[in-house]
């Protein structure tokens, strides 16, 4: 990842050096959070859209919106949750509009039955299984989908997912359990 240094927006600068110092500190804080959050925002968007370019656009938009509202955010510890939700919502919007467009253009074709003899790795890597998995993911309720995506991102425990989504850990576990069962049913 490239080094990122954020310039404070001009409208935040004032003639008062004390205020400017405070704002500079806030900007450093923002920069730090941006570094931590941008990959997460991208991955969430990518998991929904399955397209790097679109996911990058969405992540940028989400971070940009967060940047513009940064000074209005009272509890800055919630920044990550905020960005993730923005990114997820934006990605869903884009995904739905793309789906509508796609539905207009092509007919939905049912996938062929899978081979049972393949190993789990082979099955997982096959494009056919991947396509079915993606479709099954798309059919999950939005919140369950986000839970599944965040839980699958490396380095995030269920507790962290719960913190990001601002829901209890038990709820995360429950949603994950039912989502996995639903995915398995669709892919069986």
């Amino acid at each position: 990842m490239q080094e990122f240094v954020l310039n404070p927006p001009a409208r935040l600068l004032s003639a008062d050096p004390a205020k400017d110092a405070g704002r500079a500190s806030a900007q450093q804080d923002f920069e730090q959070r941006l570094k931590e959050t941008s990959p997460l925002a991208f991955r969430v968007a990518r998991a929904v859209l399955r397209n790097d370019a679109d996911a990058e656009d969405v992540a940028q938009e989400a971070l940009f919106r967060a940047y513009r509202k940064w000074t209005h955010l009272r509890d800055r510890s919630r920044f990550r949750a905020w960005v993730v939700r923005i990114a997820f919502r934006l990605a869903l919007d884009r995904w739905r509009s793309a789906k509508r467009r796609e539905r207009r253009e092509t007919e939905w074709t049912a996938p062929a039955a899978q081979s049972v003899a393949l190993t789990a790795e082979q099955v997982a890597m096959s494009s056919e299984f991947q396509a079915r998995l993606e479709r099954a993911l798309d059919e999950l309720p939005d919140k369950s989908r986000l839970v599944v995506i965040l839980s699958a991102i490396q380095g995030y425990t269920l507790e962290e997912v719960a913190a990001i989504l601002e829901i209890p850990v038990g709820t995360v576990k429950s949603k994950l359990f039912f989502a996995r069962k639903q995915l398995a049913e669709k892919l069986r």
Binding site: M1, Q2, F4, V5, L6, N7, P9, L34, K35, S38, P39, F42, R43, R46, A47, R50, D52, A55, E56, A59, Q60, L63, F64, Y67, A120, E121, V123, A124, M125, F129, Q130, L133, E134, L137, V148, I149, L150, A152, I153, Q154, R180, L183, A184, L187, R188
Partner: peptide, 29 residues
């Protein structure tokens, strides 16, 4: 099946972050 699902979802969720992400954001800022 569950291992396949985990691996598949993991592949979807852990895509590599493009290097252009932050510079583009910075230019927008």
């Amino acid at each position: 099946l569950f291992r396949s699902i985990d691996q598949g979802v993991g592949a979807i969720a852990n895509s590599s972050v493009p290097a252009s992400l932050l510079p583009v954001i910075r230019s927008r800022f």
